Amino acid sequence: MILITPLATETVRALQAGAPDAYGIPPEQHVAQGTGNPCRHCLRFIPEGAEMLILAYRPFAGLHPYAEIGPIFLCADACAQHEGGAMPEVLRDSPDYLLKGYNAQDRIVYGTGRVVAATEIAEYAETVFERGEVAYIHVRSARNNCYQARIDRG
């Protein structure tokens, strides 16, 4: 069983209040245009016309060669954190996603990175977790490499 883990509410509330992003600057305020803006907290698409934030995010605690930084979207207003075992809306929209396993030292476990069909995310994640050194998995956009969510053992 797997668990889709969104950004922590404490982190998101700080960013929504103007805390600096991974580059030390405040998140940019924008209005969602279209439906392609996935919030990394509620794991839903930000509705067209709604206020949203765009910011640089690093899904790692420390700095090291594997600590990628990239753009993400968040709802500008408080939203409920994604919970539960169901595959969230934002991971059902694209035809495929990039999954990569990481060890407890936040290093990529080579041989785990693969572009996977959206319908096969859970199955592939279970396979990756069979490797004992994998602590967690990142789900990223297969097109733009943007961080989407983390997968943990359930």
Score class of each variant (00 low, 15 high):
His41Gly: 12
Ala19Gln: 09
Ala122Glu: 07
Pro20Thr: 04
Ala19Asp: 02
Leu3Ile: 01
Gly111His: 04
Pro71His: 03
Thr112Met: 06
Pro88Gln: 07
Gly24Asp: 01
Glu133Gln: 13
Ala8Pro: 08
Pro88Ala: 09
Ala17Cys: 09
Ala80Pro: 05
Pro59Ile: 00
Leu99Asp: 04
Glu126Gly: 00
Arg40Leu: 04
Tyr23Thr: 14
Val31Ser: 15
Gly24Thr: 00
Asp96Leu: 05
Arg58Ile: 00
Leu63Asp: 09
Phe45Asp: 14
Gly70Arg: 06
Gln16Cys: 10
Glu123Gly: 14
Ala67Thr: 05
Arg107Leu: 14
Arg143Thr: 12
Thr112Glu: 13
Gly132Val: 11
Pro71Met: 08
Thr127Trp: 11
Leu63Phe: 13
Leu43Lys: 06
Ile25Val: 11
Val109Phe: 06
Cys42Asp: 03
Ser94Cys: 15
Arg143Leu: 14
Tyr124Phe: 14
Asp93Arg: 14
Thr11Tyr: 09
Asn144Leu: 09
Tyr97Met: 09
Leu55Ala: 04
Ile54Asp: 00
Ile108Ser: 11
Gly34Ala: 07
Ile25Thr: 10
Tyr23Ile: 10
Tyr23Gln: 08
Val128Gln: 05
Met1Ile: 06
Ala86Trp: 04
Val31Gln: 14
Ala117Arg: 05
Thr9Ser: 15
Ala80Leu: 13
Leu43Val: 14
Arg13Asp: 15
Phe45Arg: 14
Asn37Ser: 07
Gly70Met: 10
Ile121Ala: 10
Ala104Asn: 00
His30Leu: 11
Ala118Pro: 13
Glu89His: 02
Cys39Ile: 08
Ala125Tyr: 08
Ala8Val: 11
Ile72Arg: 08
Ala104His: 06
Asn144Lys: 15
